[in-house]
């Protein structure tokens, strides 16, 4: 089975993870990757290895909180949830993304 790489643009990973946490109260790393892949209709695939450095950085920044818990399959996993600071950061990241895409659009359309 071929793994098609569609690496997520540097910097957008934080936005995608924060957004995922905003719609899932408590979610572990693996579920974050499957959520992003599913919701994007398989257009996006989180490079799995880069997810954890990003998650841990966000935890240190105070955007997310992490705690150990048990999954339905009775496995120990580290669950992440969004903090108030993370919610604010999400708004900032969304705005940044909107500006970026708007700028790129303008350049593309310029004839």
């Amino acid at each position: 089975m071929g793994i098609q790489k569609n690496d997520i643009l540097q910097g957008t990973l934080a936005l995608l993870v924060l957004k995922t946490l905003a719609s899932n109260k408590r979610i572990h790393g693996y579920a974050i990757t499957t959520h992003i892949q599913r919701v994007s209709g398989d257009l996006l695939r989180v490079e799995e290895g880069s997810l954890y450095p990003a998650l841990h950085r966000m935890e240190q920044e105070g955007w997310v909180r992490a705690e150990w818990g048990t999954t339905e399959k009775n496995r120990e996993a580290r669950f992440y949830s969004l903090t108030a600071k993370g919610r604010k950061q999400l708004l900032a990241e969304e705005e940044k993304w909107a500006r970026l895409t708007q700028g790129v659009q303008r350049v593309i359309r310029y004839a």
Partner: peptide, 16 residues
Amino acid sequence: QFGNLTSQTERTRDMD
């Protein structure tokens, strides 16, 4: 699929 496990572990720890 995960990539280089050791180096990703190191990178995550460096973040911490």
